[in-house]
Design a protein around this nucleic acid. Structure first.
Length: 601
DNA sequence: TACAGGGTCACGCAGCAGCT
DNA sequence: AGCTGCTGCGTGACCCTGTA
């Protein structure tokens, strides 16, 4: 909708051009394996766009083509295919087969650094292949041409089947398997290569896939696309020699030299430009070691998914399940997840109900992976806007992030994801972030979006006062509270239920300044719950309670018990309020409060 | 002033899939 | 067929902001 930027067009053009060269190089080899010889029809560029063009000896083995498409007329073949309603399931099969080969070849042949740019175009580049393969695989099936079902028959079914067998064999060929197992890329490709061969199980898998994926097949392609992006991002330390014919080798070298001399813009330069344009903020928080650890975890997850795909195993993400307060306990005066009886929930692509969630999680995971690699950050909202059509709602992005944080056992800010802050702070406080200082004594400041990046605080305050509502906060300031009371104070509100940033901010203040902290909330169930969220943490973020909850916060003001016996007009609790009270009483921190206030029961 | 939307919290029900 | 588990969706509470 926004159009492709000039830089984007250049990247696209470059990757398309290079794939042309790649295919030309593969095709040039007479001894190449059948898969290498799979003819890849012209994409959108004419031969003159390719600079020196494909090698002159380029020929296609027409025995691969249906009889009616022979005579070297690939254009006719393409036109023929465009009419076909291609079975997306077969596309999937083809992606499974070719992603390893393509990625490997991409690396071997293209000495370029911006893998994202290339990999994101892979699916599109492979489209003609899908159609091509489809015309082979589907020869006995009905295909829909417009509204009419037609049966397409080819005279050389046996030949095609033999060819397909060869293709299958080539995928299990040892030459695909790395000889240097320490190399992550090679380990990855060899795992895929050594997966059980594609056999009759594929058909049942595809049937179930077609059934379950249905209209959502684009999600599946998206998933695969993401997998490939992540695969292609893996850092490759060394090159593995392959048994290439000298002709192929020459063609590849010729291409490589050619590409180095070509007027195509420098990719690093483009990448820098993109960084400057797309993102304004670098992630200053996470250490390189931590980042590498998280990237490894994501790669491992991706690898498991790919293995599951190639082996026709269930494609499932396993996440630790914290569904109710029974899964939480108290540890060091804050909420923490129970370590026993851990239940895992499954997000399965094969499950019709969860495949959408699955897709969203993998897409978000892919975005996170790319951002971590480029050391960038964004807000949850920005993440949502990257694919509104897929995410549908901000809630889905938030849930996916929770899932990912649970899977990786990290906090959102470690992934470079921040929420918009809603908290406010005013009073005797200077906040030092990187080289900037925010002075809260002169004007009310928003809680920073990345409170984890705070380096230090400067204050002479005696204590911190947290209030529930923005209206109270504003009222206190307009009443000049800072002048009217003797103590120097820091005033904070999160405008209702505290957001994560405000809680991190308070935790940081608590650990650095060690000031007393007091909170005033409504003396109703919701006020109580808000207080508890500050003090003990929440169920949703129970894994991060240590970084979020501030148990030293003291609840002051009027407590419900203060009203008992007083001559005060009491408001009756509504049915919903009473329900809330019952629910609150089930929470693990109630005992802590009982002890604090010396209740016997 | 009304309404949509965005942040937080949670629960319950219906429908589907898998297992017995 | 019935039970169980999982997920999506709806609901409802609180707090606000921004816009028509």
């Amino acid at each position: 909708k926004c159009g492709v930027s000039e830089i984007g067009q250049e990247l696209l053009l470059e990757s398309v051009t290079k794939v042309q060269y790649l295919n030309a190089a593969s095709l040039a080899s007479k001894t190449a394996k059948p898969l290498d010889r799979l003819p890849i029809p012209k994409l959108r560029l004419d031969s003159e766009d390719l600079g020196s063009g494909p090698p002159s000896e380029l020929t296609l083995d027409e025995s691969f083509l249906p009889k009616k498409c022979r005579n070297g007329n690939l254009e006719t073949t393409l036109m023929q295919r465009e009419k076909l309603n291609v079975s997306t399931a077969y596309k999937t099969r083809y992606i499974l087969k070719t992603n390893q080969c393509l990625i490997e070849n991409f690396y071997k042949v293209l000495k370029i650094s911006d893998w994202n740019a290339v990999a994101s175009n892979m699916i599109e580049l492979m489209e003609p292949n899908f159609d091509y393969l489809h015309s082979h695989l589907n020869f006995q099936k009905h295909v829909s041409v417009g509204r009419v079902d037609q049966e397409i028959e080819y005279e050389d079914c046996d030949n095609i089947q033999e060819s397909l067998k060869e293709i299958k064999k080539s995928f299990q060929s040892p030459s695909f398997i790395s000889s240097t197992p320490n190399n992550s890329f090679n380990a990855l490709t060899s795992k895929i290569s050594s997966s059980p061969k594609v056999d009759s199980k594929v058909d049942s898998f595809l049937e179930s896939f077609e059934r379950t994926a249905g209209e959502n097949v684009s999600d599946y392609n998206l998933l695969l696309n993401n997998s490939m992006i992540m695969l292609s991002n893996i850092d490759i330390q060394e090159e593995v020699p392959r048994n290439k014919s000298s002709e192929t080798q020459n063609a590849i070298e010729g291409f490589t030299n050619e590409s180095q001399n070509s007027p195509i813009p420098d990719l690093d330069e483009i990448k820098t430009k993109l960084d400057q344009e797309e993102f304004s903020q670098k992630n200053p928080i996470i250490t390189e070691a931590r980042k590498a650890g998280i990237l490894n975890q994501i790669e491992e997850i991706n690898l498991q998914l790919l293995e599951a795909m190639t082996q026709q195993k269930p494609i499932v993400l396993k996440v630790r399940k914290i569904k109710s307060w029974h899964d939480c306990t108290m540890s060091n005066d804050v909420l923490s997840p129970k370590e026993t009886n851990i239940e895992m929930k499954s997000i399965s692509f094969g499950n019709k109900l969860s495949e959408k969630t699955f897709t969203i999680v993998t897409v978000v995971l892919c975005e996170i992976y790319k951002m971590l690699q480029r050391n960038l950050t964004c807000t949850k909202r920005e993440l949502y806007y990257r694919d509104v059509e897929l995410f549908k709602s901000q809630v889905n992005v938030n849930k996916a992030l929770d899932t990912i944080c649970s899977m990786l056992n990290v906090q959102e800010f470690e992934l470079g994801i921040f929420s918009s802050s809603k908290g406010l702070v005013a009073g005797d406080l200077k906040v030092i972030i990187e080289n900037e200082t925010f002075d809260c004594s002169t004007t009310t400041q928003m809680i920073p979006q990345n409170p984890s990046a705070i380096k230090n605080f400067e204050t002479n305050a005696n204590y911190v006062l947290i209030v529930e509502k923005d209206t109270v906060f504003q009222r206190l300031i307009s009443d000049n509270i800072f002048q009217r009371i003797e103590d120097r104070i820091i005033l904070i509100t999160a405008k209702g239920y505290p957001d994560v940033n405000t809680r991190i901010f308070l935790k940081k203040m608590s650990s650095i300044l060690k000031l007393p902290m007091y909170i005033i909330v409504d003396a109703d169930p919701h006020g109580f719950e808000i207080m508890c969220t500050y003090k003990f943490g929440s169920m949703m973020k129970v894994r991060n309670s240590e970084q979020l909850a501030v148990p030293s916060i003291e609840w002051i003001g009027i407590h419900p018990s203060d009203i008992e016996g007083q001559d005060i007009v009491k408001c009756c609790l509504s049915e919903a309020d009473l329900k809330k009270v019952d629910e609150l009483l089930q929470r693990p921190y109630i005992n802590c409060l009982m002890q604090l206030f010396n209740y016997n029961q």
